[in-house]
Nucleic acid binder design. Structure first.
Length: 557
RNA sequence: GCGCUCGUAGCUCAGCGGAUAGAGCAACGGACUUCUAAUCCGUGGGUCGCAGGUUCGAAUCCUGCCGGGCGCGCCA
């Protein structure tokens, strides 16, 4: 019995109680959940349904709880129901009912954890979105890890997700990049407002290699060559490092396309139809203050040029036209000032800014060595890059370290901690469970312990406290993934994996919970076989969870 | 000044409407002829920044204040 099954059972028991007592069945919620009490004395699961409904239907919560407890206690798999406090229902399950979860998980395999919670939702997830003027740096790295994990979490919860990387290879930043390349190729110092760092010289040299005649072109043509070829090389490098990091995007969207297709004008027209456009000082403005922004925003400057914000509007409209009703944009903390205007812009289009546009803000990340933030990159000069991260920690530890914290928290990633092979390092702690379950399974195979047919599985033998704790923790997985998806917070998945890891290690250390006989000549029992199911179920959940985070689940360590 | 965000154990952080607030680290003490000790067990440690409010119930939601970070261009 999964927590979701139990919750359904609680709800159906409540319906039965309501019917026999003539209470308003309409007051019942469509779904309910059970939670795991902190205090083990409070049973395996607790329901607060009586508490929530008592007032609604005019029955004392305690009285309602009593009737509910009696009805629920008659259901299959429910061992006991106690009433506590103002009307909590503390539920205990039969060992057999709890234990079948191990088999269910193994049989579900990689599908365990999937739900329909977000079924039918089309979500566009935009993250990283760095312009091709340099390597992906520290803020982008956080979003690469968190955004990619979130996309997988959303899909697992049933959403239809498109991931997207937005870039611009035409603006003034790119001109600075091109001038910097040209200067580097000529052996001159970087321009005043240009880009520094060794990578500029590397890219410049690569451009010269690809276009040997470039330096004999006139300066304007040369700069254009450096721009065109340099952007290609830089972007290829960004994609390569993201690919090595395990991150790929469904769509790489170039701002230029918005201009070429006239989408900025289209967005302006649309906003004008909605009545939020005005002209002032020769410029064209969007009256975002109608929807809570601090000030109105210019879309088209008095010199006729479009603003960056105008492109943002067009891009948003483009995503909406592609059928995404949830546009999610992940930005660094330094961009949080955009939230107001972006939300207002969505409202100006006639959308619901609370539903159609979500802006997630990621706080700062520091890579720390010996207590001091690492500030400089070998290649990029002033910033720490994705390569620096991977070089220092490896892909698994980098992804896990970044995905295990709430994006709201500024974090310091300590190189020494995250490369340590011990309990202190969460990624090793979790990965060790993957290795340990695999090792235990190999050992079982060598000693002739097999799970046997699903029908022969003896769930009732998983009656040790450690079995029960591990089962309950594994049972939390689908709800945790769904919760993480709804809240756009993949770190909950990592935290649950750590909890599962703890429960597994304690199970493993319990002499009563052995998967194989202690001595080679001892007989193999149904208990060993039942625990092999539980061992394999754990491996399944750990592997599924790590896959959501883009981290490997090694068979051996 | 306005806005966003954070404030939970000595440190790094979970918990975000449920019961006596948790984990790791750090301190101290235990368990290896191992189904991998890369593990486990135990002990101590807290006015959940402060003050009100909503609620049967608040670390969690609302308001105000205090403190830290960040942002407030016809830049991109």
């Amino acid at each position: 019995m999964t927590p979701a099954n139990l919750a359904d059972t609680v709800l159906s028991a409540a319906r039965a109680v309501f019917e026999t007592r003539g209470l308003d069945v309409g007051a019942l919620p469509a779904t309910t959940t059970v939670e795991r009490p902190r205090n083990p004395e409070h049973g395996d699961y607790a329901s607060t349904l009586a508490l929530q409904l008592g007032k609604k239907v005019g029955v004392a919560p305690r009285e309602l709880a009593t009737a509910l407890a009696e009805e629920l206690g008659r259901r299959d798999g429910v061992k006991s129901v106690e009433i506590a406090g103002p009307g909590f229902l503390n539920i205990r399950l039969d060992a057999a009912a709890a234990g079948v979860l191990a088999r269910d998980i193994v049989l579900a395999g990689s599908a365990y954890g999937r739900t329909e919670r977000l079924a039918g939702e089309r979500v566009n997830l935009e993250f990283v979105s760095a312009n091709p003027t340099g390597p992906v740096h520290i803020g982008g790295v956080r979003w690469a890890a968190v955004g990619d994990a979130l996309s997988r979490v959303l899909r697992t919860a049933g959403a239809d997700v498109g991931t997207e990387y937005y870039f611009n290879d035409a603006g003034s930043q790119i001109d600075r990049f091109a001038r910097s390349l040209l200067a580097a190729a000529k052996g001159e110092a970087a321009p005043e407002d240009g880009y520094g760092g060794a990578y500029i010289a590397e890219i410049a040299a690569d451009v010269v290699k690809a276009e040997p005649e470039v330096l004999s072109q006139d300066p304007e043509a040369a700069q254009e060559t450096f721009r065109r070829v340099g952007v290609d090389l830089m972007f290829a490098e960004i994609k390569k490092s993201l690919t090595e990091f395990g991150v790929h995007f469904d769509t790489y969207f170039n701002e230029k396309d918005l201009h070429d297709r006239g989408e900025l004008q289209e967005a302006l027209d649309r906003l004008r139809e909605q009545g939020h456009i005005f002209e002032s000082d020769g410029a064209t403005w969007l009256r975002t203050t109608d929807f809570g922004d601090d000030k109105d925003r210019v879309l088209r400057k008095s010199d006729g040029d479009w603003t960056y914000f105008a492109a943002d509007c067009a891009y948003y409209l483009d995503k909406r036209k592609r059928g995404f009703e949830r546009v999610v944009i992940m930005l660094g903390a330094d961009h949080h000032g955009y939230i107001g205007r972006m939300k207002a812009m969505a409202a100006c289009f006639g959308d619901d800014p609370a539903k159609n546009l979500e802006i997630l803000i990621g706080q700062m990340v520091n890579l720390v060595r010996e207590g001091e933030p690492v500030r400089m990159s070998k290649r990029a000069g002033t910033v720490v890059t994705l390569e620096d991260f991977v070089e220092a920690l490896g892909v698994d530890a980098t992804r896990y370290a970044l995905a295990r914290y709430s994006s709201d928290s500024p974090i310091d990633i300590d190189i020494d901690l995250w490369t340590r092979a011990s309990r202190e390092n969460p990624v090793y702690y979790v990965q060790y469970v993957a290795a340990r379950t695999a090792s235990a399974a190999r050992q079982a195979e060598a000693l002739g312990v097999t799970r046997g047919e699903p029908g022969d599985f003896r769930a009732d033998l998983l009656d040790n406290e450690k079995d029960n704790e591990l089962l309950k923790t594994l049972g939390e997985y689908p709800e945790t993934v769904a919760f993480a998806a709804e809240h756009r917070e993949p770190h909950h998945v990592a935290r649950l994996l750590e909890k599962i890891a703890g429960a597994y290690h304690r199970f493993y250390d319990e002499p009563a919970c052995r998967i194989t006989p202690k001595n080679a000549d001892d007989p193999v029992t149904d208990g060993h076989r039942a625990r092999l199911w539980l061992n394999d179920a754990t491996r399944t959940v750990i592997a599924n969870g790590l896959a959501l985070l883009g981290v490997s689940a090694p068979e051996r360590m």
